[in-house]
Amino acid sequence: MEEVAARFPYFMIAILLGVGVWGMVGKRSLVKKLIGLNVLQSAIILFFINGSIREGGTVPILFHGEHGNAEDFVNPLPHVLMLTAIVVAVAVTAVALAFLTRIYREFGTVDEAEILSEMERQT
């Protein structure tokens, strides 16, 4: 039980990663690909945060003027990195949506197979 308690988040994250990859590669709808991408990014972020935990540690905010004692706080570095990763995910999503808007205007659909057949038809 202890083992499971210590490990299960990793397994769950593994599943989330799989779901994300499935969405990105296996789905035909371009919107679903984007959703899969967001799932994948969040899973990676969760993984990083899982690695920042320290037994008995708390939120890394000191009291004013206090000298921080490393044992009392969780590791702040992954948090910083993940702030960046979240922003990257949002940026990618924004660009992808801009693409989608144009694609929809152009083809009237966001389904990959339909777009391909539409392109075939046109040429």
């Binding site: 939120v59 905010i61 004013h64």
Partner: peptide
């Protein structure tokens, strides 16, 4: 600087 949050 003192509580969660920042520019983003």
């Amino acid at each position: 600087d003192a509580s969660p949050g920042g520019g983003f």
